[in-house]
Amino acid sequence: MLITLAQAVVNGLLIGGIYALVSIGVTLIFGVVKVVNFAQGEFVMLGMYVSFFLATRLGMDPIVSLVVSVPVLFVLGMLLQHYLIRRVLGLGDMPQIFLTFALSLLMMNVALMAFSANYRTIQTAYSNLALHFGGLYVPVPKLIAFAVAMGLSALLWVFLKTTDLGKAMRAAAQNYDVAMLMGINPDRVFAVAVGIAIALAGAAGSLLMAFYPAYPMVGQVFVLMAFVAVVLGTLGNVTGALIAGLMMGVAESLGIQFVGADSGMIVVFVMFLVTLMIRPNGLFGGWAR
């Protein structure tokens, strides 16, 4: 019993690292630019296909292919901010929602046309390897993905806390007008924030590719988790999104283990509703706000 519980927690944390990466991206865009990006999951999907094609065409390991997917998606994110999101800022909520929602639909359908609906997987030398710690079973691809996800989150934290651009980003999230009075160029800070957020989604995709199938709608699974985590972790709070992302993974896994194989999401949403009844602003105070 205890070992089953521990195993469920480990499984949850491992996938929770991916949820955390996607959630951090959503909360970063929301906190800084004040836009909800419904297309965040589709950038995970894009990261997966980038790694899938690099693996099948060039034989590149999916984890290694982060060095391609992260910069490519960073640039895509900057372009997304510059050419699309920037144009709907200040026009109210509806144009922003339509924009990112439409982008999500567009990306899914283009992927469907270009890549077909087939599930794509790749095999690596370590695909079937697993570590055993006193009865616990830890698959190597998931462990690597988790470690890299935590490493990237730590890097982001260091960036936000110690660099001038990172501090400018937090300042702009807290007070846009006054940030400009400090000489901060909002266009630049916003583009970098969205670039980082989309790069994290791409990283999540590449990491997932080591153990999860790619298909055009795959982003929907992750974006749903991310939205719950972002609210639980307090909107705009990066550390909150990280912790909540991990918690979602654990909640889902416990649900699967103890309620039923298709009940993971039920447990997640029950946890979500109960938390919101007790703490409507999420579990954490504003951090980036």
């Binding site: 937090r170 807290q174 007070n175």
Partner: peptide, 10 residues
């Protein structure tokens, strides 16, 4: 600016 407007979470 009026009303101080420091960045509260910095």
């Amino acid at each position: 600016p009026e009303g101080r407007q420091v960045f509260p979470e910095l």
